[in-house]
Design a protein around this nucleic acid. Sequence first.
DNA 1: GTCCAGTATCCACTGAAGTAGACGCAGAAA
DNA 2: TTTCTGCGTCTACTTCAGTGGATACTGGAC
Lengths: 175, 175
Amino acid sequence: MPSAEQTPAPRSLAERLDHLFQVIHPADRGPFSYHEVAQAIREQAGTDGPTVSHGTLQQIRTGAKTNPTIKTLEAIAAFFGVPAAYFLDDTVADRVDARLRELKAAATQSGRPVRLPADPRQDELADVLADSNIRAVAFRLAGLSPRALKGLRAIVDQVRAVEGLPEVGRAKKAS
Amino acid sequence: MPSAEQTPAPRSLAERLDHLFQVIHPADRGPFSYHEVAQAIREQAGTDGPTVSHGTLQQIRTGAKTNPTIKTLEAIAAFFGVPAAYFLDDTVADRVDARLRELKAAATQSGRPVRLPADPRQDELADVLADSNIRAVAFRLAGLSPRALKGLRAIVDQVRAVEGLPEVGRAKKAS
DNA sequence: GTCCAGTATCCACTGAAGTAGACGCAGAAA
DNA sequence: TTTCTGCGTCTACTTCAGTGGATACTGGAC
């Protein structure tokens, strides 16, 4: 039952970031570019939050820099919607990767949401934010009591109805 | 599941390191000194591992430096026997602190120094196994609008607060 | 073919993290 | 008392993480 992941090799920081780039991206296109991520982090952070340059992203991903500061790490993690501990802790990394697979499967099942036909580039941005927000919610579920989760499930079902989304059959259980 | 801890959870990096200094030390004496920790890390690491100077320890603990590199963090965490994610992730920090309290209570009776030889992350396996309810919610998130997801995130955060769970996400609140 | 927009990579520069020595201040021993 | 030892703090210096512009490459539009 614990779909035992057998990626035994303790992956390096570069490999972990590369993995995020490969796995997390809009469904209808390829991975993010360094400039994209850097700019998104810059906008999302505003004035208070930490930012990361495209150069730093490239250097960390390619292994040229192996010892970033925690603020850099947190900024990157926040963009991809994963806890910063993902880069430091094998256990956290495995759990996150497992959940990422679940979310990816769920997203492909429900199909792409239809969005306003505005600027196609903004459409992609909205897609990205959606994925990121899903992860933000999903990670917050850990530790909640079954009772609370049941209540939340009902709430989400109601929200789905409001937004005109189909019901989720409980038979869906992509292993 | 962790009983709702009421202790004032250390939040900032400085507070967390200070907490480790206060909690983890030989039973028959006071806390470690910076020089002690620095030298112990130096010896324990040998030639390959990362080291930390006494100045760095003091600066981080007092808040003079708030953005260390991950190798510095890992070296400190290794000495105190806690996962490096302790400094970044509230959930990990709470779990470790709970375990530390247990060990301290047991150690003060037996007169042994407080250490963390065991892996404090084994508890997370239970969380993973209890994920069926989480999956049920997560599946329903796919396709929802960013606006709805943001609202749900707030709801989940409130539920977490009600159940005494720590906040999720970037723990940093750079003053 | 020529542009052009977007990409990854490289690299000189800036600034902050890390270092290690100096300093002052305790408390204990002589 | 003085001396010594060990402590935390401070700080000049070194090192390297982070930045951002330059560069070259690619694929598509014309």
